[in-house]
Design a protein around this nucleic acid. Structure first.
Length: 957
RNA sequence: GCUCAAGUGGCGGAAUUGGUAGACGCGCUGGAUUCAAAAUCCAGUUCUUUCGGGAGUGUGGGUUCGAUUCCCACCUUGAGUACCA
């Protein structure tokens, strides 16, 4: 019997599906283990060989854990809301639900044929109403909560209302909107309901606010910061502008410190933690308040700044406001008015991108106003300049030119004095910003102090005069949660007669997406949901329905609740921020998950996915998890204990070279000195030796150039292509479809090869030619269990003790190495180990069951189909997937002698075989007596001989 | 600019605590088999060499009996981030 991989793989995939082999049970005597993949967005293009890399790694780990006796949860699902399906709907009119369902079908087929051990009974789809019911539910929970700084957690908004009613808001210490007016209990109780709701909205964890957002006109929607790359949209590369809009926001900033601290408690990669730390952007310093010196009839103002260097406060020689700063118009003197206004207009025309690209040009204008130094009382000129950003800190800085290079450049350019407050430092060329070496001088009470002491003292003195305090600032902004799209979760929100947002009662969820005629914004510029004919909430008591505007207006107002439903939908990250918990109890209709389920599965033990989600999904999910923890729904405030980022598999593109203005294509070796244009060709027409299949290329009508009349100039009878490593993409003709690989070599070969390519975390190129190596290994493995011309199954159960000895050594060496490799996620080296084992056992002509049976369990996580097949041929019943992992026995690896490397001054020159029980002195004697030692020494006497028993001998001299 | 990761044969990569650099595989070379090809099997494959040997892990230094591994400086590549006060 030949190794017929296609038949074997189909057989076992069917077996697993029929027997629900990988169904995880909630609650078991076995210890639990939760292995999670980042679920895919089902795109229309299907999977290419790069996509399954992380899934194969996590599948190996999940299968390994089952062999170790764990109850393993290894689910999969689809992040199925998103832009591409909607764009397709706009173009073709096809409902995104249909496109999505088709794409999911393709994905499922492709995933199934790779042999993953997913528990498909737990599949989730974020676009399914039974799933997004719970995304809407979490939104309501967030709406009904506020963040109490005193307890450092989220609490019920009803508690806050009680506090307001009994003592007002003076003592409330909350993360909330800025500039909330103080009110007493009496004030609160006198407010009407609308006013009360407006105030509460300023405290809620999800709130409605007019915010400056990233608007992408081409996509017709708002984008989050992490959806913008280099100033253009991540999807499609369209320009993005700033625009003020009323939007739902998430108060993630409330969790900034906990999100930062939590990083120390989880086993995630350092680079990923570092990205999150940078994104959160904590800086410790002080806020300082400067009084603006009143001129003429103008009323007094103050400028608040944030600084990380309060120790340099005596070095302030001017202040700079962002051009958009609200005080600019109020403090500018009549003489400067014209110039200032011209500057504001000029800088508003510069896009965010221009401003970023052009950091060298110094520009700014004096406002004519002066502020008063809090200590010296000297007047300080107030400037505006676009190097100060309105969106960070307070949008104003105290400029210390001697200590900050940007302030220094600005001062030099505009001839502003640069007082030196550093002892013994020359600042004639550039600013001095080294905190560690700072000794403050020329600064009254700070003289002679280092950075740390001076900072502390400066903050103390500022507090004494009531003009400042220690402050920590975070770069992390609240997350805009509204999108002007169709294909996303509808908000469970309607607007009442006062225009105030109201949550739909939980019992009516899910609020399903309405049907629309077209998926574009309405003519009046409303989001696509504005096209829905029926999108008004109408509720009397326990009865509710969605009706048209007219039906709502004509309904009886008596006991009526309702109004226009929210037209925005939720962003892409909404559905992915709690999916890992939903998998624990995915079919629960009464709760997002049961208490029993979360108590049993706890949290994700291993999460594998791409690093591109570092500041998006992985940050938002941690935020929601912390919120769910505060509310007592989950018992860990981090959702994933360990996280690994798999690297990307790149394509190996192939090029032909057309000689300029001809139809001649030159082989790679002939292009030197010629003017040629490299052109991508499909990689499937290139063999392992980089030779082009010219006939194949010419007969291909599907893509690319027309080669029918092309002349290919050969070298040594063949056409050699050029090669380059690039991202896999259709336009580069370097995409490799796993379907083709599975058909030609089998899923087990694909799995082994993806692992064999290199370390999991690394970026590495795919080259289909190399797969023959692992495929040959599988054939060799098959042959170990089969004999003769026809390959009849043969495994002996009574081997001679001699052949077993060597084979046992091979087996146990392999057990040890493979176990270590899996636990270190070093899957590439275990594939090598399997190859070595198969080579050795073949050389040993090993046929014994005692060796070959445990070997299958070792290989089973990597190549599960062939392992199942041979396992069943060995007359085992059932699946190999829960067979216990073989125990390593060190006694089989004990050696009596060692082939010692003999080095001279650290360079290995020869080896000699010596017994391991020899003493140090005896080893030295034996080595020095060796003829090659004398040859190396050439008459010299060794100065020193280093003997490390069992390792090495080094002779110095 | 800052932060992080990484530089090893023609290629992907291995060397877990400092101890025989290049495992394993691809490709290449030669051979067997074949009418021929595919497939399979065997031998070789870092460079250099006067065939004794010598050099060698991005570059330059250091620590050590001994460094791909530890330390310092620099160069290159990739990723993230950026007028963040």
């Amino acid at each position: 019997m030949k190794y017929n991989f296609n038949a074997i793989e189909a057989k076992w995939q069917k077996y697993w599906a029929d027997n629900q082999t990988f169904k995880a049970i909630n609650g078991s005597d076995k210890p639990k283990y939760y292995v999670l993949d980042m679920f895919p967005y089902p795109s229309g293009a299907g999977l290419h060989v790069g996509h399954p890399l992380g899934y194969i790694a996590s599948d190996i780990y999940a299968r390994y854990k089952r062999h170790q006796g764990f109850n393993v949860l290894h689910p999969q699902g689809y992040d199925s809301f998103g832009l591409p399906a909607e764009q397709y709907a706009i173009q073709t009119g096809q409902h995104p639900a249909i496109t999505t369902a088709e794409n999911i079908k393709t994905y499922r087929r492709q995933l199934d044929q790779i042999g993953f051990s997913f528990d498909w009974s737990r599949e989730v789809r974020t676009s399914d109403p039974s799933y997004y019911k719970w995304t809407q539910w979490i939104f309501i929970q967030l709406f009904e909560s506020w963040f109490n700084i005193d307890t450092d957690k989220a609490e019920d908004i009803s508690e806050l209302e009680k506090v307001f009613a009994s003592e007002g808001n003076a003592k409330v210490n909350a993360v909330c909107d800025e500039n909330i007016e103080p009110f007493s209990a009496d004030d609160w109780n006198a407010f009407d309901s609308k006013k009360q709701q407006e105030i509460l909205l300023q405290y809620r964890l999800t709130y409605l606010a007019e915010t400056e957002v990233n608007w992408c006109p081409a996509l017709g929607t708002v984008l989050a910061n992490d959806e913008i790359v280099n100033g253009v949209s991540e999807r499609g590369g369209h320009p993005v502008i700033r625009k003020k809009m009323t939007q739902w926001s998430m108060r993630i900033s409330a969790y900034a410190e906990r999100l930062l601290q939590g990083l120390d408690t989880i086993d995630w990669t350092d680079s990923l933690k570092e990205s999150q730390r940078n994104w959160i952007g904590k800086s410790v310093g002080a806020s300082v308040s400067f009084k603006v010196i009143a001129s003429g009839t103008k009323q007094s103002h103050k400028i608040d700044v944030f600084t990380t260097r309060p120790d340099t406060i005596f070095g302030v020689s001017f202040m700079t406001l962002a051009p958009e700063h609200e005080l600019v118009s109020k403090i500018t003197t009549p003489e400067q008015k014209e110039e200032v206004e011209a500057y504001i207009i000029a800088s508003s025309k510069r896009s965010e991108r221009d401003r970023m690209a052009d950091v060298k040009t110094i520009s700014g204008v004096f406002t004519g106003a002066y502020a008063e130094h809090p200590f010296t009382k000297e007047p300080i000129p107030v400037w505006i300049g676009d190097y100060v950003l309105a969106g960070y800190g307070t949008g104003a800085v105290m400029s210390v030119p001697c200590g900050d290079q940007r302030d220094y450049d600005f001062a030099k350019y505009f001839n502003i004095p640069i007082p030196n407050i550093f002892d013994g430092i020359d600042i004639s060329e550039e600013a001095f910003s080294d905190k560690e070496k700072t000794v403050i001088g020329n600064s009254d009470f700070l003289n002679g102090m280092n950075y740390k002491k001076a900072t502390k003292r400066a903050i103390y003195e500022l507090e004494q005069i009531g003009q400042g305090e220690g402050k920590t600032n975070y770069r992390l902004r609240d997350a805009v949660f509204s999108r002007q799209r169709y294909w996303g979760e509808p908000f469970p929100v309607y607007y009442d007669a006062h225009g105030m947002p109201q949550m739909i009662d939980e019992k009516f969820l899910p609020l399903e997406l309405p049907e629309v005629d077209k998926y574009l914004p309405t003519e009046t510029g409303e989001p696509p949901l504005g096209n829905a004919k029926k999108w008004h909430w109408l509720q009397y008591g326990d009865k509710a329905e969605i009706v048209s505007k007219d039906e709502f207006e004509n309904s009886s107002p008596l006991g009526r609740l309702g109004g226009a439903l929210e037209l925005n939908t939720m962003p892409g990250w909404a559905g992915s921020s709690q999916y890992f918990n939903r998998y624990m109890d995915p079919n629960n209709g009464d709760a997002i998950f049961s208490k029993e389920a979360i108590d049993y599965w706890q949290q994700v033990d291993l999460y594998i996915g791409g690093s591109e989600h570092a500041t998006g999904h992985l940050l938002y999910s941690r935020f929601w998890q912390k919120f769910m923890f505060d509310k007592g729904y989950v018992n860990h405030d981090e959702f994933a204990k360990k996280l690994i980022n798999q690297g990307m598999i790149l394509g190996t593109s192939a090029f032909v070279y057309r000689e300029e203005s001809t139809n001649n294509y030159l082989s790679l070796g002939l292009i030197e000195g010629k003017k040629v244009q490299p052109i991508h060709v499909k990689v499937k027409y290139v063999n392992a030796s980089d030779e082009l299949d010219i006939e194949g290329l010419k007969s291909d009508t599907e893509f690319g150039e027309d080669y029918t009349d092309a002349k290919f100039i050969l070298e040594n009878g063949v056409y050699k292509v050029g090669r380059d490593v690039e991202k896999m993409s259709k336009s580069k003709f370097n995409v490799v479809n796993p379907d083709d690989i599975v058909l030609d070599y089998g899923a087990d070969s694909l799995r082994l090869y993806e692992m064999f390519l290199g370390p999991l975390e690394q970026y590495k190129p795919w080259n289909t030619a190399g797969i023959t190596g692992v495929h040959n290994f599988l054939k060799k493995l098959w042959k170990l269990y089969h004999q003769g011309e026809n390959g009849t199954f043969y495994v002996s159960s009574s081997p001679t003790s001699e052949e077993l000895g060597e084979a046992l050594k091979t087996l146990h060496k392999t057990i040890k190495k493979v176990q270590e490799d899996i636990e270190n996620f070093s899957f590439n080296t275990s594939v090598s180990t399997f190859m070595i084992a198969a080579n050795e056992l073949t050389a040993q002509k090993c046929t014994s069951k005692e060796i070959l049976e445990p070997l299958l369990v070792l290989i089973s996580p990597y190549a599960p189909h062939i392992a199942e097949e041979l396992w069943s041929q060995l007359a085992n019943s059932g699946s190999i997937s829960t067979a216990p992992f073989p125990e390593f026995d060190a006694s089989h690896l004990v050696e009596s002698s060692k082939n010692y490397p003999i080095s001279f001054n650290g360079k290995m020159r020869f080896t000699m075989e010596l017994p391991l029980d020899l003493s140090k002195d005896d080893i030295e004697k034996a080595v020095l007596a060796h003829e090659k030692t004398q040859e190396q020494l050439a008459g010299r006497t060794p100065k020193k001989v280093i003997v490390v028993p069992g390792k090495i001998v080094n002779i110095v001299g």
